[in-house]
């Protein structure tokens, strides 16, 4: 068998495409859900860390440091294989979502914190003196400016979460990678794996380009 027939076997690819497709749907569901929940969690933790009472600040800080230290794969396996021993049984989808969200939330919190801290003190003061309440100040004045600053690092984080969804295949999650390895076993040919790799790249390359573009425009437009 030639190289082309081994790695880029058209017949095998077409046969296993439905399987890859179901995997891709799961990967995208898992990725988007974890990114969305991670953003909400991260924003909440960042606000706690910056503006909460002392106890909340400490909790936020511990959370951020803890989940930036633990390897995602370890966390995932602990949630899926260890928690059942204390009666917490989560599906592989729920386990993967939880692990990805917790870790993404910690990184997102640090990104939001940096963005909010970059807003000049005068913006807070002007909003307060105009009589805006704290939530109004954050929603109308501070966060729109902070979010603009953190869009490039947040996009970077989204790319990481999307890539990390592949780890879910170790907890029997039928995601793109898992389905590709299944298909490879069925077809006795590695083409589905190559196909899966190509699909990951196809999805994430545009996001990578987007981040580069943000970085370029931010350099030019420094105001």
């Amino acid at each position: 068998m030639g190289l082309i027939e081994t790695f880029f076997n058209a017949k095998v690819f077409v046969e296993t495409l439905p399987l890859l497709w179901t995997g891709l749907v799961v990967t995208i569901e898992l990725g988007l859900l974890s990114i969305g929940l991670g953003l909400l969690l991260g924003l909440a933790v960042a606000l706690m860390r910056l503006f909460g009472i002392a106890a909340l600040r400490i909790v936020a800080r511990i959370y951020i440091d803890l989940f930036r230290s633990i390897p995602l794969l370890v966390l995932l396996i602990v949630i899926y294989y260890a928690l059942p021993f204390i009666g917490i049984r989560l599906s592989s989808f729920a386990s993967a979502t939880l692990a990805l969200t917790l870790v993404s939330g910690a990184y997102t919190a640090e990104i939001f914190r940096a963005g909010i801290e970059a807003i000049p003190k005068g913006q807070f003061e002007a909003a307060k003196v105009l009589g805006l309440s704290w939530p109004q100040m954050m929603v109308d004045v501070i966060l729109p400016q902070a979010v603009k600053i953190v869009i490039p690092p947040l996009t970077n984080n989204c790319i990481n979460v999307m890539k990390d969804t592949a780890l879910a295949s170790v907890v029997a999650m039928p995601d793109l990678l898992k389905q590709a390895t299944q298909a490879q076993a069925l077809a006795a040919n590695p083409t589905p794996l190559i196909g899966a790799a190509a699909i990951y790249i196809l999805i994430l390359w545009p996001l990578v380009l987007l981040v580069s573009r943000f970085e370029r425009t931010l350099k030019v437009d420094t105001r």
Partner: peptide
Amino acid sequence: GMVFQSFNLFPHMTVLRNVMLAPIRV
């Protein structure tokens, strides 16, 4: 009301929106 040395206008809003914000919200 207070006017600052460094203006502290909200840079992501138009001039009009800067002036309208607090009367609407507060």
